[in-house]
Design a protein around this nucleic acid. Structure first.
Length: 268
DNA sequence: ATGGTTGGCCCCCAA
């Protein structure tokens, strides 16, 4: 029997401030699994009724005070993967993983919030950039040691890997999120057994963005976007890729995030 | 070349 599984990822930039927008997202995209980044809420302050309200009653959170924070909300039962690495030894709530109990064989989901990396693309001058590169290297090594199977990896990876993942490739080569060191690192991580599910549907010669800075007067008119949010699937799931959606309209939702939701449907 | 905005939280940091 074939069924569909729809996964959404969204850097929501404060879950407590934007609960209403999640109701809107459910009405538009109806994901079975919703992965959030930058929840900015410690677990005891994560809205306790949110999952039930959205029809996604199985909820896992990893949050901290003020910064970062990730969550998975699911229509299906989740088994948390407890033995995930402590990335860069920082215990900073940037990753949560679970098995989704669906059908005869579970699907594994990884939800990442990769460090943004600060402004200066130099690890000596800017330790945050070094942290970002180290995080990517650790992630690559981790998946090299346990190759993905029936696995979906989503998140705000804070890197736009392709020329058409940014509004101006040449101008952004020296800007954190599109430097050669970052894009090479992200490609090596993905090559540990994943396919870029969104680029499976959208040709590499098409511009594709998931984030537009708050610092533009009119994000749609200037369209200085970047594709920072990604969904990858393990290669065994490539044949199951069914369709995708990038909800650019969400950038105009009242008091919205600077990121928009990315949605993938699989026929499994 | 610079500045532009947002959120959380302790008057500044991170994005």
């Amino acid at each position: 029997m074939t069924r569909t599984l729809t996964v959404a990822t969204w850097n929501i930039n404060s879950v407590r401030l934007r609960q209403d927008l999640l109701t809107t997202l459910m009405a538009k995209a109806a994901p079975d699994i919703l992965c959030l980044q930058e929840t900015k809420a410690p677990d005891f302050l994560f809205p306790s009724d949110l999952g039930n309200k959205l029809g996604l009653p199985h909820v896992l959170t990893r949050g901290m005070k003020g910064y970062n924070g990730v969550a998975v909300l699911s229509r299906f039962e989740l088994q948390r993967l407890e033995t995930t690495p402590d990335w860069c030894g920082k215990s900073d709530c940037r990753h949560i993983a679970a098995n989704v109990l669906i059908g005869h064989q579970p699907i594994t989901i990884h939800n990442f919030y990769v460090p943004a990396g600060g402004d200066i693309p130099d690890r000596e001058a800017n330790p945050k950039y070094g942290h970002k590169l180290d995080f990517i290297t650790e992630a690559k090594k981790h998946f090299a040691s346990c190759p993905p199977y029936r696995t979906i990896l989503v998140g705000d990876l804070n890197i736009a890997p392709l020329e058409n993942d940014v509004w101006n490739h040449k101008q952004l080569l020296g800007v954190v999120s599109h430097t050669p060191a970052e894009t090479a690192g992200l490609n090596e991580w993905r090559e540990q057994g994943f396919t870029d599910a969104i680029r499976h549907f959208v040709s590499q010669d098409q511009k594709l963005f998931t984030w537009w800075s708050y610092r533009n007067r009119d994000w749609r008119a200037s369209n200085r976007g970047r594709r920072l949010d990604h969904i990858w699937v393990s290669r065994d799931l490539e044949a199951s890729l069914s369709h995708h959606d990038i909800l650019s309209e969400a950038r105009d939702w009242p008091r919205g995030s600077d990121h928009v939701p990315v949605v993938l449907t699989l026929a499994i």
